[in-house]
Amino acid sequence: MTTPVPPDSRPPLVRLRDVHLSFGATEVLKGVDLDVRSGEALSIIGPSGSGKSTILRCINGLIAPQRGEIHVAGTALHQLTREADRLALRKRIGFVFQQFNLFPHLSVLENIAIAPVRILGHPRDEVERHARDLLDRVRLSGKERAYPGELSGGQQQRVAIARALAMRPELVLFDEVTSALDPETVGEVLAVIRDLIRDGLTSVLVTHEMRFAEEISDVVVFTEGGRIVAQGPPDAIFHTNDNPRVTAFITGLGNREPANTGTEGRAR
């Protein structure tokens, strides 16, 4: 685990201030403030529909909030009006999806290489060398020529991680990346992410894997009803927090024995 840096020692890589977002009449985010520093791993936990995935999509500009400020890597995202500027920022931010979303018509190697070659215009041989290194890193050497349809869910997700890393991102967003996997393959994906974070990858993870979040995070954020209800170091959230709602959520997931007598835990 990385040592948390002292607060305000350098400007955060991601900074959200008072972010409000609605889909039609449904208010999804009701004033979110969030800081992610370089080299830090931040986990977002909380019940379904609390706006976790929407926060990730605001950070890479896939969704534009109606109100609030978003600064990412020195760019004021909320002030960008041209799609081209948002695209330029997205190239610097990796995104890994719950359902992998690989390109089904491309081989594993092509899935990883297509964006650096076609979008960044990098030389193919150099990109392919990098892609093979990444495949090695996600423990899928030898699968270069396979198609997504021939891989298990866990393997596809690791290809998706390599695809995001191929752009050499400054930040990677993980959106419930193990939720679509069977219990046996969850471990292999988490092991890969754990290694990346140990190596200093800046990341924001939306996850329901409480143990994992506790183990790898520098900061854990609990969201509910479009607001950040609690945040702090993992120990503070998982063990010493005095917010009954957070405790109920964590214990309801069966992660550990209740720290205090929370009985209204959510069954999943």
């Binding site: 890479n60 896939l62 695209l87 190239k91 995104f95 964006a115 076609r118 979008i119 752009m167």
Partner: peptide, 23 residues
């Protein structure tokens, strides 16, 4: 979801058409 993955990688509308949708 496939289109969203392409957009997240920085593909623009034409690049999505050329490399994802048309193939």
């Amino acid at each position: 979801t496939t289109l969203e993955a392409a957009r997240a990688l920085g593909f623009n509308r034409l690049e999505i058409l050329r490399w994802v949708e048309l193939p």
